[in-house]
Amino acid sequence: MAHTRDFEALVLPHLDAAYNLARWLVRDEHVADDMVQDACLRAYRYFDALRGDAAKPWLLGIVRNNCYAWLEEERMSARWVAHGADDALLAVVPVPPDSRGATPETELWHADRRQMVDAAIRALEPPYREVIVLRELEDLSYAEIAQIAAIPIGTVMSRLSRARAALRTALADLLGTE
């Protein structure tokens, strides 16, 4: 029972980060739910293996492995399509309530940017998408990202740099007006 309490205190606070990563990787909300749920169960079973390491990269590493296994399965079964279910939702994702004067024009402006930025991230291949999401949205360190993606820190940096270059091109219009 102490085991369960420790797990809930250490691991469950990272559920949002886990879900964000899964959702960006598999691009479907229900699949992302499955990935995170399964990852949590695995994490719970192997909780003893978490010795002194930080729980966040550890959980995210399990989530990532699940997502890659799923992506691979999808690719093999040829059900894989170039765009995930999220792309269809792109146009209908509601804009979060924003403090910055919510006039219809600014709402539209934010919705517009969100769509473009999201689409640019989605267009990246998974290895580049994941480093961008972990670095820019989850604010993780190079070392943590290296642990999650099981790659050397140098590779994290080179992937980030390539991903940013691709985003700079894709979002050139927005960057010009920032």
Binding site: A18, Y19, R114, L167
Partner: peptide, 12 residues
């Protein structure tokens, strides 16, 4: 900056 400000952060 653009990403942090505008990209969707999905929540569980």
């Amino acid at each position: 900056r653009l990403l942090r400000e505008h990209a969707t952060r999905h929540r569980a």
